[in-house]
Amino acid sequence: MKSSLVSTFALVSLTLGSSLATAANPSVEDIVQKSFIAGKVADSVSDSTFRLINGNGQERVRETKGQSKLIKGTLDNMRLVTFLSPSDVKGTKTLLIEHTGQDDDMWVYLPALKKVRRLVSSNKKDSFVGTDFSYGDVIGHRVEEWTHKLLREEKVDGKDTWVIESTPKTKEVGENTGYSKRIGWIEKESKVALRGESYDLNNQLLKKFKADKIEKVDPANDKWQPMVIEAENVQTNHKTIIEFKNYKANQGVSDELFTSRSLEKQ
């Protein structure tokens, strides 16, 4: 009884505290949380071009079609990526279903095998469909698992940003994401991180991120989406640039799309 009182009090003061902070100057956690949801639209469709560039400047280009939908009442996304080119991977599909607090589900359909295979992915540091983005980078890092610190405020490409450093609260979070530290340049208006850096478990700079052409894709819900995102692994000099075209939010995408069975269709 006593303990629940204390915790209620704590919760109230925390909420109060954070809302107080918003009025004057938002708290760091607030900023990071807003950034976390800034791009989470109810559903979306887009065409995207993946450009993978290695250290020697050689390039692989993959055209894909993407569909996403938030699972009702959660911040977990379902994402379907269908490869359109090159020809030898045409028709390959990957389906990712996020589960907060548990392992995500990942299925892949290989047209050459005509079979759906499940990928066992237990950590967030794995590459997202062969890019320099990890699943963690794509899904977003859980705000509460990290300690955030406002380093300074800075202009990036003429836009005001907060520069926030995030470090994992536990060793597991660090190991699972592969990062010992992240730094984000969060734009004040859109809350989208325009720049980012992540450090590996040896505290060496591992990746640099960049987001460009930020568009307000869902004005009603204040959702923003960069049309170009870039990740560079500075240790391997490998780089991925993803460019979205025809990005549309709130298209009434059907839940049916996001089942392993539907992958085999068409």
Binding site: Q58, F83, V89, T94
Partner: peptide
């Protein structure tokens, strides 16, 4: 048994591997 299968295995692998995993064995293209 086919080039498509090879390509799709590699794409599949790349979902859990890293882009540079095979850099020591085969060139980018």
């Amino acid at each position: 048994e086919s080039q498509e299968l090879v390509a799709q295995y590699l794409l599949l692998y790349s979902n859990s591997g890293e882009p540079g995993d095979f850099d020591s064995y085969v060139d980018y293209n």
